[in-house]
């Protein structure tokens, strides 16, 4: 069953917490991965791969650079999840 927006944000928060050690409550739609959440370009790849597994979605390398905020990633997953 497809995940809702809330479930995706909660899932991303757990992933970001696991990879970058950021408190889950800090992971909000308007937060930038690099500027607000200390997720650099390499950690972002780890976030993306974890999100792919969790939400059954493919996020190609060329799309990763467009996912600036948690909201961008959430919208992408909502649109592309299997």
């Amino acid at each position: 069953m497809a995940a809702t927006q809330e479930e995706i944000v909660a899932g991303l928060a757990e992933i970001v917490n696991e990879i970058a050690g950021i408190p889950v409550e800090d992971v909000q739609l308007d937060k930038s991965f690099t500027d607000d959440l200390d997720v650099d370009s390499l950690s972002m790849v780890e976030v993306v791969v974890a999100a792919e597994e969790r939400f059954d979605v493919k996020i190609p390398d060329e799309d990763v650079k467009n996912l600036k905020t948690v909201g961008d990633a959430t919208d992408y997953i909502l649109k592309h999840q299997g």
Partner: peptide, 12 residues
């Protein structure tokens, strides 16, 4: 090199 693509391929 394309850093992110290399990183993903190399690690996973």
């Amino acid at each position: 090199q394309e850093g992110q693509a290399v990183f993903r391929w190399a690690v996973f």
